[in-house]
Write a protein that binds this DNA or RNA. Sequence first.
DNA 1: CTAGGGTTAG
Length: 796
Amino acid sequence: MKSPDFVRALANLYAVQLHLCSARSPSSYTLARSVHAHMIASGFKPRAHVFNRLVDIYCKSYNLVYAQYLFDECPQPDVIARTTMIAAYSAAGKLKLAGEIFGGTSFHMRDTVFYNAMITAYSHNDDGHAAIQLFCDMRRDGFRANDYSFSSVLSALALVIENVKQCQQLHCAVVKSGAGLTSTVFNALLSVYIKCATSLQLSPSLMVAARKLFEEMPERDDPSWTTMITGYVKNDDLLTAKELLDGMNEKFGGGWNAMMSGYMHHGLYHEALDVFRKMLSSEIQLDEYAYTNVISACANAGFFNFGKQVHAYILKNVVTPTPAFSLPVNNALITLYWRCGKIEQAHEIFNRMTVQDLVSWNAILSGYVNVGRIDEAKNFFEVMPEKNLLTWTVMISGLAHSGCGEEGLKLFNQMKLLGFKPCDYAFAGAITSCSVLGSFEQGRQLHAQLLRFGFESSLSAGNALITMYARCGVVDDAHSLFLKMPCVDSVSWNAMIAALGQHGHGAQAIEFFQQMLKAGILPDRITFLTVLSACSHAGLVNEGRQYFDIMYKCYNISPGEDHYARLIDLLCRAGKFSEAKEVMKLMPFEPGVQIWEALLAGCRIHGNIDLGIEAADRLLQLIPQHDGTHVLLSNMYAVVGRWEDVAKVRKLMRDRGIKKEPGCSWIEVDSKVHVFLVDDAVHPEVQLVYDYLQNMVHEMRKIGYVPDTKFVLHDMEFDQKESALSTHSEKLAVAFGLMKLPRQATVRVFKNLRICGDCHNAFKYMSKLVDREIVVRDGKRFHHFRDGKCSCGDYW
DNA sequence: CTAGGGTTAG
């Protein structure tokens, strides 16, 4: 046990120490933690001012939980502690808790400062009316409003003002009110003018009035300059903002930060960096806003090296940053690191932060989503302490882009049930989910909902819709949407070229590409990927090669592995293996997974067994557990009738525990979607369809559509060969559709697995037999079978 | 202890 004297001495020491450091100083947080720990260990109950000091430090370092804990420990918290807590709750957006403290404080304890804190709490949380009401109550109850009260209520008024007249009336009222006309009050008034200018779309006249007020102010401090410069920035007048900043002689940092942020939001990253460099070389104090702005600009613009240098500079020159300092800076750093491909470092920064807020969580979540590590992203999503609209949106679009369409849609509905109003990005994610699933009906409903929400001119949602319509089989709808969109960007053009290409309309895709160039849109690396795919799917070998060449020559885009893979794919599908090998020799890097996959797929089609085995060997070294490689290898052996080797690969797959996905098809009949599974023996129509197919196989053999020796079996054993064709689910589905649909109607099949050679043959035959179009989705591509031929020109 | 301004996540 400590003696009472010792504890008293300690208490005095604490009080002095805490009194000496500012609440925002770097060491205050560490000191508070050790004092707090000591208090708990020794059972020491300090006097109110020490409590208040600790509460204040915790609040200022965003450590609301500790502050709350201390506050609850206070036997009788005085008005100062209460004021501090109200401010902290307000900053954390917990208006209700702030209100509880306010309401639970008796009248005789209250003072003006206490009222001011609550007025500010309301106005910071966008409840202007409540703030104004409380300001009136305060004066009615006999408390004198001071300049802080006026500043607070002015910012509340900015929230509710509806027209210019009110704005000017307010100006007069303030002058007459007898408020101490301090610079704070002027700044608040200036801010009212500028907020109105921005929201009422009457910017010119109000900005002139604001500037007049600014010039007439008795003295202009840092916030005055910041407010005025921000005003111009918010009204998209960067030129005037810059002029004003250049005319400023004081060493205030706020205006510079505002300027940097303005440049960044207009995509002028070089200018933003210039501002930062000027700040560095002048005597302006760099603060967290400056660092946050510049790091964010670097992350957005891809200036990763500069960003990392700033990080190093901070670590070297800013001693022991407090959590309050480091929170926004670290949040920006998380984004910087994952954007430059260093997700592990981003994670480490996240882990090392003493406090994380929602922004930190969203930043790291986006990181994992954007590098495609969806399982880790899901884990973060699960354990997040709170979620906002952005959280949900990021997760939904992440799931959709990782192929988890069902989960994406589920989350979208969950989000709506929780009362979040989806933004256009959220819609885009949900729509992309439909593309993945091929759910045309749901996609159309989402489109209708989107219009009801007033997002008809949204670029991101529009682009997602183009892809959705295309991947649900209706290119025409995609096209008419593209034409209806009020403005389009390169993503829209890419989506449209992809839509045409995926449906085998190679020539039209190229035509669209030419139109894009004519419209003055610069093609990017995605454009070329898309164009090359289109050529490959339609068998346009020469065109594809030509576009591959101009990519670097005319547009200075160096082809990546993905571009080379498309080119190899194009050549191999056409059977030009020696040329493909030539390309691989001249390639500036070693072939990776994508290249070998393209090669193997081509070999499978043409039965080029030697090259195919080499490709498969390489692939199995690179990705030993990949099911697709095994399937392709086994199919290739099947193409040349090496059934023993097929069986060996099958055994290998079993030994390695590789399970192939069950084949599953969706077929659209009378707008209802029927599902067939490979082993769907319970489906009442299966036997009927089976007989239909047996008969069809027989007929196909007679005219040579199904060569006996080139039967490709991808999920059967060798001895099941005879029944293979009739058990393939997609063919069952088509047969079913043909029997049910009225003549001439188009049959659409949506399937996410690759179709095989015998499917392709069967579809061709069926289309001729029944004289109608059959549309089959094969991964991201489509085959249109008509009159015994396929749109892919048999370059499948 | 309270005010006015500039920041971070897609």
